[in-house]
Design a binder for these strands. Structure first.
Lengths: 356, 356
DNA sequence: GTGAAAGCGCTAACAA
DNA sequence: TTGTTAGCGCTTTCAC
C-alpha cells in the first residue's frame, strides 16, 4: 500500500480511504490513487485490514458434505450473494463424528469469520452452547434451534400436504419411509414423520407403526429390504411416502424390478424435488435449498452489520406438492390383488423406468 | 494471547511457540499454557499470524458452480485433506462471465490465500498470465495448461476406449454428442471428440461430421433435437456416445419416449459415471473427480511448502469403461429396420426406463 | 480533504 | 528454554 501511496503522491491513509470508497477523498486524488493501484496490481490484504477492524470479511459455513444436491444448491445461491457483499466464503466440511468432535474442540472459525452458517446438523445442547460464545452471529440453516436465528423449511406442513395428496387420491394404507440418521444429522425426519401422522389423524385414518419403515439413503439394497417389510404385511400399503427423493427412486427401482406397477399398483411420493425426481417422473414435495441459502446469507449479512437489530430471526420456507407420474388414485380392488393379468402396462412417461 | 500468557505466567512468545507445537517448550510450561488457552477458550487469529508469517493458511478454489456432481465430489475429497493440514478452504464461485471478469479484474484471492485451485475453466492466455503473477502457486484442475501444474483426466484416452468399446460391439455408425460450452468452459469436449475420432481412424471407420451433433446439457428438449438430427440421417447411427452422462440419459429418455429400444436398436454410452448413470443402468466411461480433488489438494500443499521443489506437476488420471445395460452388440439387420415387431422388450434392468 | 502516528495480535530474531 | 523487541500492512483517531 505504501508503494501505491508513493506512486500516487499521497499518504497511505488516503490510499486506504480511496480503496474503501470513503467519500472524503477529492475526485482528482481518487483517480490518481485508483490508477496507481491498478498499475501496481494492488489488492488490499484482508488479513492486515481485519487486524485493525476486527472484521474478517469472511462468512464460514459448516456443512456435513459438499457432495449432495441439497448442499450444492444452497451454496450455489449463497456464494454469489456473499461475493456481491465483498465477503469471502469459508467452508468447513464435517463429514463424520471425528471431524465434528475436532471442530467443536477447537472451533477454528473463532476469530476467523464474521458469521457462521450451520447446515443440517442435529446439534446437542452442549454444542449449541459452544457455538453461542463463538463471538459471532451463528445462523442455523435447514434446522430449527430454539432462540437462535434459523432458516428452515416447514417440514411438518410439507409432509402433511404430501400425505393429504395421497389421502385425496383415496389411499388409506399409506407407508412412510424415513431415512436413518447416519452420522448425527437427520434431514428433518422427525418433523416429516409428524406431518405424516398429523394428516392421517385429521383424516381419521388409524396410525399403524408397521407402515413406518426406515431405510438408509442412496442404497437400492436397503430400499429393497424396507419394501419387503411393507409388501409382506398382512395388509400392504397402496402408497409409499419416502422422506427423500433418493429413497423414493430406490423404492420405485425395486418395485419395477418386482414388476409391481407404479403408480397403478402402488403410488410413490418423494420429498425434495431434486433433479432425480424429474428424471424418474416422481411426484414429490418440493423444497428450495437455493432459496434457503439465499435467505440464510442475507440474514447473516444483516446480523453482521447489526447483530442486535430487529431482524426476522426465524425464517420458515414453504413447500409445494408436485404431482407427477408416480402417484395415482388408489386401485378399486384391494392392493396385492392384480386388477388384470401381469404384463406390460400402458404407455407411461419414459422417465419412469417401466417393468415390461 | 496476552491473556493466556498472563494466566499461564509466561510471555506471549512462549504461548505462541506452544500453540504452534514447537518443540522448544518445556513440558510443564506447555501444559500450563495449553490449560490456560483452553480455560480462556482461546484460538489464534490467523489474520494476525498471517500478517507476520506471510502465509494465510488458506487455499482458494475457483469453481464454475458448486451445484454439480463433479464439483461436489471433488471438493468433498479436497476439504478434509486441507483441514487435516490445518488449512482453510476458501471458495470462489464464478458462475457467469460477469463474475469472471470481476474476478480477473480484482483477483480477490491475491494475498488472501497460499494457493489457488482453478477448476474447469477454459482460460484465455491473458487470464492465465494474470494468474501467473498472483504470487502463489496456481494449480489447474480438470484441465491442462501448458507449463503450469495441472491435474486432469486423460479425456482423449477415455473417449478412445469408450469408442473402441462400441466398435468392439460391432458398431460402425457411431455418433458423438458433445456439450456446447455454455459459459466459457467446455468440460473437455474437444479432447473427448479427439479420442472418438482417433478410435474411428484406427479402426478404419470413415469420419462423418453428420454424426457429431452438439447439445446443451441437462435439457431433455435439446437432447431431443440432437437425437432428431441423428435419426433423420440417411444412414442413422447404431450407437451414440454422449460426452456427459446427463446428456446420455436425456438421449435415452427421448429414445424410450419414441419407443426405440436401448440397447437393442441403439446403444448409448456416457462419460463420467455419476450416480445418475447407475440409476439408468448406463454404460459409461468413468472418471473420478474425488481422486482429482485429492491429488490437486496434495499438490497444492506440496507447492505451498516448497514451490520450486521437484514435484510431479502434470498429473494425468485414468478413466475406465464401465459397461452396463445400455450398450450391446449391433443388431445384425441394418439400423432403422426393426428386427421384430415393435412391442415390449424382454426383461431388463429396472433402472433403465423401458418403453413398453 | 489530507497526513502523521499509534496500534490491532501475532511471530521471528535476538539476547539472556 | 524463555523473554524482549521490532514490525508485518493496514485502519483510525487526531491534527491540520
Amino acid at each position: 500500500m505504501a508503494d501505491v501511496a508513493e506512486r500516487a503522491g499521497v499518504s497511505t491513509s488516503t490510499v486506504s480511504r480511496t480503496l474503501r470508497g470513503l467519500s472524503t477523498v477529492s475526485p482528482e486524488v481518487r483517480a490518481r490513487v485508483e490508477q496507481a493501484a491498478r498499475d501496481l496490481n494492488f489488492a488490499v490484504s484482508r488479513q492486515a485490514a481485519s487486524l485493525v477492524t476486527g472484521r474478517t470479511g469472511t462468512v464460514a459455513v459448516m456443512v456435513p458434505t459438499l457432495n449432495s444436491w441439497f448442499m450444492g444448491s444452497a451454496l450455489s445461491s449463497l456464494a454469489p450473494l456473499l461475493r456481491a457483499a465483498g465477503m469471502q466464503l469459508n467452508v468447513y466440511e464435517i463429514p463424520d463424528l471425528a471431524e465434528r468432535t475436532a471442530f467443536f474442540e477447537h472451533l477454528p472459525a473463532r476469530r476467523n469469520a464474521d458469521a457462521l452458517l450451520v447446515f443440517s446438523f442435529d446439534l446437542t445442547d452442549e454444542e449449541t452452547a459452544r457455538l453461542d460464545d463463538l463471538g459471532m452471529p451463528v445462523i442455523y440453516v435447514s434446522q430449527h434451534v430454539e432462540g437462535r436465528p434459523s432458516v428452515y423449511v416447514d417440514d411438518v406442513a410439507g409432509a402433511l400436504h404430501g400425505t393429504r395428496h395421497l389421502l385425496n387420491l383415496g389411499h388409506r394404507r399409506i407407508a412412510f419411509v424415513p431415512t436413518e440418521g447416519a452420522s448425527g444429522f437427520t434431514f428433518s425426519s422427525n418433523e416429516r414423520l409428524l406431518g405424516y401422522r398429523q394428516a392421517l389423524a385429521e383424516a381419521g385414518v388409524p396410525l399403524d407403526d408397521d407402515l413406518v419403515v426406515s431405510t438408509r439413503t442412496g442404497s437400492k439394497r436397503a430400499a429393497a429390504e424396507s419394501l419387503g417389510a411393507l409388501l409382506s404385511l398382512r395388509e400392504p400399503p397402496t402408497a409409499v411416502f419416502a422422506e427423500q427423493d433418493e429413497v423414493a427412486v430406490a423404492l420405485i427401482w425395486n418395485l419395477r424390478k418386482t414388476r409391481i406397477a407404479v403408480p397403478e399398483r402402488i403410488s410413490v411420493l418423494g420429498f425434495d424435488d431434486q433433479p432425480l425426481a424429474d428424471w424418474f417422473d416422481l411426484s414429490t414435495v418440493a423444497q428450495s435449498p437455493s432459496e434457503m441459502g439465499r435467505l440464510a446469507g442475507e440474514l447473516a449479512l444483516k446480523l453482521i452489520d447489526d447483530s442486535d437489530g430487529d431482524h426476522e430471526r426465524h425464517i420458515v420456507l414453504p413447500t409445494h406438492v408436485i404431482p407427477r407420474g408416480t402417484t395415482a388414485p388408489v386401485a378399486t380392488r384391494p392392493a396385492g390383488q392384480p386388477e388384470r393379468p401381469e404384463g406390460p402396462e400402458e404407455s407411461e412417461a419414459p422417465g419412469s423406468p417401466a417393468s415390461a
